[in-house]
Design a protein around this nucleic acid. Structure first.
Lengths: 200, 200, 200, 200
DNA sequence: CTCTAATCGAGACGGTACGTCGCGTCTTACG
DNA sequence: CGTAAGACGCGACGTACCGTCTCGATTAGAG
């Protein structure tokens, strides 16, 4: 025999429905306005949900954003950090850009919409946490600075990419990323002048 | 977006006193909490000023921050952009870090306190505006991306520097800046591996 | 306004158990707090019953109170009204007080606990209804006023009695009732001065 | 010379205006619905006042009712209690009914509208408090019971009077009051049977 | 050294959004 | 079918700040 509550963590269908509606509504609204100007009641109304139901699931708007983004961010971070360590950073960069390309719509909203600032903070915070637990490879730059520069650069570059109407291919962006952001952050060196131009 | 009375010439002594009190109070408070969590009434109370007096001088908290930071930011930007263009970027970087070192306390609050996010936004916005009016030098990277990466990198690096308890000398930071941020952003190239380490 | 299922005949044993638990819980709670501050969920919890179960049996807290008190009230009213009409009002009063004395605990809660106000309303309403259907004896006072005064007086006197730590005997209370409440309400006359004092 | 704040307690005109608007609105609404079903926001809206302004002046609806009724109640009580003590209770009763007649509209709302229950409670509470501080005249009935009966009776009688479409004259009501309520409560005696009928 | 007008503090006000509470209904799964 | 468990839509609650406003009192700074 098993426990009396039959599926111990199998969520009530209504719960899943409410959360999904809230997640979708937030993503919609973030395309139009910044997170801090979204009223929770409006969000709930758009989700077709009583506003108290919002609070039954999330304590704050940020928590809802987290519920949407946390996994994504963790995935991204797990692709981001190795970029600093691996010998072939170029391949790691390509893995990163391909991942984002595969989740284009979501990441476009997250990094160019009204939650961009919050997302950058979150990304940086998670990266720092993850980085602190890694073996710290010898590096020219202080570790924390390297992480900060890499994450900031990656975020700026991805945001720039996701804002494009006619986006560059992931491979080319990976090149950019490797040469203009990751390489310098990893090794603290500027490239020598006079190499061939990048760009479409 | 400074004072509502167009030319603040021939200022009443009371006006100057009120504004100064408000500026000082904001800087104090930013050391402890983020801009968005500072209530205007608390700010005014700490400044020893009626809360209506705040509104007589500034429409928003952001405007007050601007009044504090606008000149500083413009100065910083005027030192930042050339960094991307000048042949000896190393010298331009040194000018930048020396300037910040000379305003250490103020910039520490601005870039590491509760206004950091707002400041980054403002810096980036002003940089973009200024950059758009410059002659656009041939560059490997798209101009807007180069500016975004440079500004983000500079801000991160300065914030890292200003957070240090026992700060590096300006010259060494200028080195870092040149090699890990400015160079790559200007030329889109990572440094080759294997050069000498940086550090104190 | 009792149970939603029209005739509570052939009651399921579970139904009876639930209702009894709810009745007992309400009486307990009324000793401590006013009816309007008792949350239905708390009531159900104390009764060891799901809160939805409450609604299956009663539409409101008041309906539950009714289920507890309706018969009692009807009995009391059937003893109350004659008091105004019968020649020997003293005997009728004695019947009334003896009845209450026999149900002391229940009436103590009802008239001195958190339902006192509701109970008074209910008693008055039922009395009015019953009084309207009676033959209206010639009386000095307008009928509706006489009923109102008599009921209010009876209720106040009973409440006073039931609050006593060391209660008077029913016979003495019947005396009081007859002389200070029923007589005047029935005949609209104050007693002459100078008679013997009442009291234990 | 006098104090710097010219009128030390002369209230801000806006304050007086807001309170008056709230008082009027509450009285209006009490003619239609019970106090507990009046939402503070609706009350404020009807008063033409922001709902927060309500809270700036009163903590609860009951407090507003108090602000309206407290003086009136105190006045009424100061006329009510002597009724039990004075030799010519008839004259005291007349003073009482004349006072109510002079404030007809207000008392009609208070005792027959949605605040009737609250008002009765308040009247009884204040009466008890005042009575406790009086010299306790020798009486047939226990003091607390006498007060309870007198107040309950007065309230019922006034409510009955105020509900009349074509109200009896104050003098006749004073007669009723004296003979059916005050006399019995004061002396604990019913009037002898067989006297002349009262009525219009 | 006045006089007058700008500036001030104090704080009431109409609003908007907040997060909480309790309601009565509805859904799900058991026994 | 009655039940426990509990999510849900609803709507009032009381709070916190917002930005606007009026009110006298003060205090420059021009005459």
């Amino acid at each position: 025999m098993r426990s009396p509550s039959p599926p111990p963590l199998a969520e009530d269908a209504r719960v899943a429905r409410s959360r999904e509606a809230l997640r979708a509504a937030l993503l919609e609204m973030l395309e139009r306005e910044p997170l801090e100007r979204i009223a929770i009641r409006d969000l709930a109304r758009r989700a077709g949900v009583g506003h108290a139901t919002f609070y039954r699931h999330y304590p704050t708007k940020e928590a809802l954003l987290d519920d949407i983004a946390a996994d994504e961010i963790r995935r991204l971070v797990s692709l981001t950090l190795p970029v600093l360590d691996r010998a072939d950073s170029r391949a790691a960069c390509a893995a990163l850009t391909r991942y984002v390309a595969g989740r284009w719509q979501l990441w476009r909203v997250l990094l160019t919409g009204g939650a961009a600032a919050a997302l950058k903070e979150e990304l940086l915070a998670i990266s720092r946490r993850v980085a602190a637990e890694r073996p710290r490879p010898a590096r020219d730059l202080p570790e924390d600075l390297a992480v900060a520069l890499a994450v900031a650069g990656i975020v700026e570059l991805l945001a720039w990419w996701l804002r494009q109407e006619d986006p560059w291919p992931a491979e080319q962006v990976a090149d950019l990323l490797d040469r203009a952001v990751v390489g310098p952050a990893a090794r603290g060196r500027a490239p020598p002048r006079g190499e061939a131009a990048v760009g479409p």
